[in-house]
Amino acid sequence: MKLFLSLALFAAFLLCPAACAEGVRDGLSLAAGRALPALVPFFLASGLLVRTGFAETFGRLLARPLARLYRLPPAAASAVLLGLTGGYPVGAATAAALLGQGALRREEAARVNLFCNCASPGFCIGLVGLGVFGSARTGAVLYGIHALSALLAGLLTARDGSPQRLPPNGMLPVHAPREGFAAAFCAAVQQAAATSLTVTAFLAVFSILLRLLAPVLAPIPYGQALAGVIELTNGLDRLTALPLSRGGLVTLASFLLGFGGLAVHFQVRALAAPQDLPMAGFTAAKLLHGAIAALLTALVFRLSPAALAVFAPVAPSARGWPAAAAALSAFVLLFAIWGGKRAKNKV
């Protein structure tokens, strides 16, 4: 299978050079215009905070919630916080850095990585809220649902560890070396540069794939939604072309935000590999995140449509979408739980 996929990609690149070139331009434009301006400061902050002991200091504040709800040590607090606010894939970068510093064990880093990779508030409000739906409030509500869904998904995927026993000061013993600020800053800049290059490369490659798959996706009903499963930003930009109601569009956008797109999944894998951070159950966890987000969004839209007001023009849709969305989300939810259980013994 691996050989077949490699040959298929080689043939596509060889036979469609113009589409590949356009894909590279799309990816580089996306990286320079949207992704890196939002992510690089958080990549730098992540590396700097981990290297200067922030994980230990901040962990004292969240020691008990992390231990009781997720059975995680206090050092995981920085990965959770930065993952919820920094954008994809800052959470994975932080978890990998904590593992490399010795602040988290391998199994603990793997569990926190299952739910600490989220879209940033700026991405949800700016690109999704204002850019897609013409409403900053819609983006803010979607971010709140997105963050809550991540924490709820973590309760179902990240509680496999043994209960944490905290010492009186609220900290577990950590053997991470401390660095001076100058050394930590230089190392954090180098780490941020390497991570940014990884993100840019994956955006370019997946933009190529979208260009190559465009003729295939075009005739497929709701093919634009499949584009979002492959690469999140491109898929979100194409949402309003789908023949769905306002509630259906917002619910689908919420699912895509939770799932993150395959481009993000591969970025996380690339960041995890150098530290040998296990990835078992990651895709199932992201499916679960997306399903919970979609169900919560559909519920909020039904109870209070004004909370998710949409001002951008949307196409009319069939009446059966709400029931179909609920059925699809339930199926994804069950599949994600089943997949997560299968992955437990592999971490």
Results as ranks from 00 to 15, higher is better:
P173Q: 11
A201F: 07
I220Y: 03
E179G: 07
L226E: 00
Q224F: 05
L217A: 05
F181L: 15
V174C: 14
T200E: 03
A184T: 03
T200G: 02
L172A: 10
F181D: 00
M171C: 12
Y222I: 05
L209M: 12
F181P: 07
A227Q: 01
I220K: 02
L166T: 04
A227S: 08
S207W: 01
C186E: 13
A176I: 07
A204E: 05
M171S: 13
P168A: 15
A188K: 08
A218W: 06
A214K: 09
A204C: 14
L226K: 04
P177N: 11
V189D: 04
L210G: 07
L166V: 06
G223M: 00
Q190Y: 13
V229W: 04
P177V: 11
G180S: 07
G170Y: 06
F185W: 14
R178M: 11
P177A: 15
F206D: 01
A176Q: 08
N169H: 15
V229R: 00
L172Q: 10
Q190M: 13
A183Q: 13
A225F: 09
A183R: 12
L212G: 06
V174K: 04
A193L: 15
F206H: 06
P221M: 02
A201N: 07
N169Q: 15
G228M: 03
F202G: 06
L217G: 05
Q224V: 11
E179N: 12
Q191S: 14
L166A: 01
V229S: 03
Q191T: 14
A192M: 05
V216W: 09
L217I: 02
V205A: 15
A193Y: 12
A184H: 02
A192Q: 06
F185C: 11
